[in-house]
């Protein structure tokens, strides 16, 4: 018998032991009755990593169509009422604000002051049909979800 065959046999036996004996035994003794999703959220929620639903993916696919032309910024009416220290323009919804789930927390002030109605024209001129207003709705929804999982307090 070759050493490769022995290695494979040893590996298969170990996996079999884990599946048939070790894992069921551990589950029997486990007192944590939380579901997998609950455990996932407990682990990753405070880091801002929440499950991405099919609806989320659809909106984010729309954001990925952005070609960074900046035309929406030319027609973003919110720029005339919000300071640049709060909001940098409609294009940022696609290229920045929705880019990373953990960073959505930092858009709280923008979302509190941004009105979807001010983005109607900006969305209409977008050559690639980025759903700017849907992105605002998505960000607001994610922000609510994130607020249920606050980040750990730093010492």
């Amino acid at each position: 018998m070759s050493s490769g065959f022995l290695h494979k046999l040893k590996g298969d036996l170990f996996l079999g032991y884990r599946a048939v004996i070790a894992h069921p035994w551990r589950k029997l003794r486990d007192e944590d009755l939380r579901t997998g999703e609950e455990r996932f959220l407990a682990n990753y929620g405070p880091e801002g990593l929440l499950p991405t639903t099919a609806a989320d993916r659809e909106v984010l696919n729309g954001a990925s169509r952005c070609i960074h032309c900046g035309l929406c910024d030319a027609y973003d009416r919110s720029l005339s009422v919000l300071p640049r220290t709060v909001h940098l323009g409609a294009s940022q919804l696609a290229v920045s604000y929705s880019r990373a789930a953990p960073d959505i927390r930092y858009t709280a002030e923008i979302l509190a002051r941004l009105e979807e109605s001010q983005l109607v024209r900006a969305e209409a001129v977008c050559p690639t049909r980025v759903p700017l207003r849907q992105l605002v709705v998505y960000l607001r929804r994610k922000l609510v979800e994130l607020q249920a999982h606050p980040p750990p307090k730093t010492p």
Binding site: L71, A74, V125, P127
Partner: peptide
């Protein structure tokens, strides 16, 4: 027209 295009860019 659906939106603006390359002329505006």
């Amino acid at each position: 027209r659906r939106a603006l295009g390359a002329t505006a860019m």
